[in-house]
Every structure is written in C-alpha cells, then in structure tokens.
C-alpha cells in the first residue's frame, strides 16, 4: 500500500534566511500513529505546516493520499485536519458555531448528529452555546480538536497537543485518538514528552535542526531502551572468561579488568542472580558493580548532540 503521506527532500528556508527544514524525507503509512520528537525550533511545526499547505515549501515535494500538496492542493487538503499549537479561535462565536464553521470550510454537508457526538466525546456538549472567549484554556484546546475533526479528516495533525494540558483532557484526548485509530485515521503528533510518544505512537521520528535523525518502530526503540548493562569491576584482571561464566551478553572489557553483562529488563529472567552466583563459584573477587541503561531520553539527547 502506498504511504498516505509522502515527504521527499523537503526544504524550507524562510524569507529571513533561516532554514527550518533541511532535506526531510518521510513516509507515513495509512492508519498509523507517528510521533515527531524534537527540541524547540527543530522544525516540527514547519514540517507539519508545510504538509498542511499553510507554509509553502522551498524545495522537495509532499504528497497526501497521492495528491501533491502544491499542485493538487484541493484534494490533498480535503483529507487533512490540524490541531495547532496556539489557541487560535474566533472569540465571539459559540462552540457549536465554531465547529459548524470548520465543517463548512471543507464543503461537508450539515451533520448535527456527528457534531453532537464529537462535542460529547470531548466533554464540550454542555458548553456548546458558550462563547469561546468564556472558556478556560483547556476547554479552548478541546474546541480546537473538535474543529479539526469536524470534517472527518483521514489524516490528523496534532501539534504539541498536550502542552499545558490537564490530566482530564489528556485522558479525553487519548480516548479520542484511540477511537480515531480504530477508524483508520492516520495521526501525526509532535511532542516534547517521550512517555507520551511511547504510550501511543506506532513509530517515533526524531527531528533536530530541520533534519529527521531517526524513524523507528516504538517497540524497536523500546527494546534498545530496555537493555541495561551490568558492569562488574574485578579485583584481579582475568585473561579469559572462565568456562562456567561464558554466556550470551557477557563480554570481557578493559583488558580483563571488568566484565560487562548486557541484559533485557523486560525479559522474564535477567540472568543476574545466576551470573552473580557463578561469579562466586568461579572464585572471582569483585571490586565494584554498576548498572546503566539507555533511556529514550538518552538516545534522544545523544542523537541531538551528535548532530550538533
């Protein structure tokens, strides 16, 4: 199946000379949830804006549903919904009219039943006749989500959806996302929160200084993350790993001064207890023990640093 969003060598240089995107290539499969992770100013919002058609690309191409976003913009945009980072809303209009307006902009026929279910899902139904200016920040973000979904987009962009959002809304939001996933809607979100990406994304892309550094399946990344290293400092260096100690994941390092055992924290048995028992049985004196793990945070920081 062809990707629903296809980004090829996308560059964006703003009029001031700042290069926000520097050759981004990315394929997004229909129905997947992908999280774009990156520091502030990495180019996440520019990437989203360019796919959505709000920003014009300087080079490269973007296709949504097989339609080029510049040449075949009407068909491409028809499929897209966006929840922007800023709380930009018409303040004097009611919640209901705001949602209806968005649906109208996409030339969809009136469907009050759908809008009602949407507002109910987002706990906005009670507030449908309230003016947007009377709502709290969290409620305004719900309105933005309702507007983005009013025309039933096939591809939904969430730009920092949970920045400054309370627990209640976060729960509501992920419930809606779950439902959309069930309906086969493709979701692209940007976030600072690694746990959030872990929790809902099928794939995670790391973006820094306008470039995609890595895109990997979340489990894959988690496996890399779930690996821990046990470093055993020996009192006396060994020339060789004794027969009784040899096993998968054990290595002799620093000229035999230490042994490093790599294990999976998610495994049923880590093998640490057995290893320690065998060490004692082999008569090796331990000077020190330490463990370290590679969290996504570390991978992320490492990647970004490497890039800088």
């Amino acid at each position: 199946m062809p990707p629903i969003v296809s980004v090829r060598d996308l560059t964006k240089t703003y009029a001031g000379g700042f290069t926000a995107l520097d050759g981004v290539t990315l394929d997004i499969e229909e129905g997947e949830i992908i999280a774009l992770l990156g520091p502030n100013g990495a180019g996440k919002t520019t990437l989203i804006s360019t796919i959505c058609g709000i920003t014009m690309p300087s080079g490269g191409a973007v296709e949504v549903g097989g339609h080029d976003v510049v040449r075949d913009w009407r068909k491409a945009r028809d499929m897209i919904g966006l929840v922007p980072q800023e709380l930009s809303l018409e303040p004097f209009s009611t919640v209901w009219n705001n949602a209806r307006f968005s649906r109208g902009l996409f030339d969809r026929p009136r469907d009050d039943a759908y809008l009602e279910s949407l507002l109910r899902d987002l706990s906005l139904w009670e507030k449908r006749d309230a003016k947007v200016m009377e709502l709290s920040g969290g409620m305004k973000r719900r309105v933005l989500i309702a507007k983005a979904l009013a025309h039933r987009p096939r591809v939904l962009f969430l730009d920092e959806p949970t920045a400054g959002v309370d627990v209640e809304l976060r729960k509501d939001m992920w419930r809606v996302v779950e439902r959309l996933r069930g309906e086969g809607v493709t979701i692209i979100l940007t976030t600072h929160y690694i746990e959030e990406a872990e929790a809902i994304a099928d794939r995670i892309g790391v973006i820094s200084r306008g470039r995609i550094l890595l895109v990997e399946r979340t489990e894959e990344l988690m496996r890399r993350l779930g690996r821990k290293e046990l470093r055993i400092e020996l009192a006396e260096p060994v020339d060789d790993v004794p027969e009784t100690l040899r096993r998968d994941g054990l290595e002799r390092v620093d000229g035999g001064q230490a042994l490093v055992y790599t294990y999976d924290t998610h495994a049923e048995r880590t093998g640490i207890t057995a290893l320690l028992a065998d060490l004692q049985a082999a008569g090796l004196q331990l000077a020190d023990l330490s463990t370290s793990n590679s969290s996504l945070e570390e991978i992320f920081v490492g990647l970004v640093k490497e890039d800088a």
């Binding site: 058609g53 709000i54 068909k75 945009r77 966006l82 930009s88 809303l89 968005s102 030339d107």
Partner: peptide, 17 residues
C-alpha cells in the same frame, strides 16, 4: 481579525481558493 486572532490558519488549511 482572523490574522489578529490567528484563526487565519483555518482559511489556509481548508480546500478553498
């Protein structure tokens, strides 16, 4: 007004000429 409040994004996003 949409430029001022930021809601102009909706007009740019929607399939309208």
């Amino acid at each position: 007004f949409p430029k001022f409040t930021g809601t102009i994004y909706e007009y740019l996003l929607a399939p309208i000429s």
